[in-house]
Amino acid sequence: MSRTLKQKLFEPPSIRQMAPGTKIIVYSILLLWTLFVLFPIYWVFITSFKTAVDVNAGPVFLPFIDFQPSLHAWKELFVFDYKDTLKAYSNSLIIALSSTIASVLIGSMAAYALARFEYKPKFGVILMFVIMMIIVFFAVGRYGVDWRLSCAVGVAIFVFLARALGHHFTKHLSNGDILFWMISQRILAPIVVVVPIYLMFQQVRLLDTHLAIILTYTVVNLPIVIWLMYDFFRSIPYDLEESAQLDGATRLGVFWDIVLPLSRTGLAATTLLVMILAWNEYLLALFLSTSKAQTMPILVAAMNAGERGILWWSMSVVIIVMIIPVIVLAIVLQRYISKGLLLGAVKG
């Protein structure tokens, strides 16, 4: 090392002090990766302005030089087929927004509860609940008992037994266990639960409605919200909340007036993350929507099935329309997201 101790101490290393060779290697790797990241997006973008001829005759790369950009694919989708596109787009918007609001709200409340109150659910009661649930399922599935009746009776018996026997159990779980239980729901692959959820919504005639998808997305994203928000809430001093209580606020009021505004950074990151996940989700929507509640990913995936093969130009338009708002959000808020994600990752 040729740098003197003084240099090392007082001049933080900067690009000028990196060996020229290293510099070239670093920049070429980064630029190469930039190319790798941007090229597919660029390709989708220019394909959306191509005509069938431009696509099928082999690759053309540069608009106005290689080929004459045309708006026909855009027109087709937004002028002729605008109803389908707009429908899917508005479905996606409604579903992503509602489910995000719901899961951020419900998840934050649960995370706050776990950060502030002490819970001691009895192990025995939980076991009783699981046994009762299995009995209910057997009654419905095997013996064909009406599901409403079965559930109602099951819940009634459970509540009765829990009240009567609950205090006999001594072993109980802690907040940490509840937190782990909630967060670990994310491990659950959606395919495991989607068929029963499908059947459930079929029974209550909610298939292919916004509500069904919103509810499902809300639950799927709850673990992320709880996981990310828990630490934010723990870092808020008790004093503030107690002070607000004495000022006359209810617990919900404290949560709304004091706790949520103080966790703005975390909320922003969490909201954005959950919204993007909901916006892009495919598998659950595939099961739960058929036509009326179809979301954008389903619309895009369905374009595969054309008779003339894939209409790349139309496909590209839809993809562009779908990713533009997300990319804009991502660029504007990427610092928030990385901070939020880091916070979650650090505490594990």
Binding site: I41, W279, Y282, V300, M322, I323, A330
Partner: peptide, 20 residues
């Protein structure tokens, strides 16, 4: 910012883009 973008893109879109 650039390296972050792909995460935001719908997997369906990624699938088609790479198929192309």
């Amino acid at each position: 910012v650039v390296f972050f973008i792909p995460l935001m893109i719908t997997p369906i879109g990624v699938g088609y883009a790479f198929r192309m």
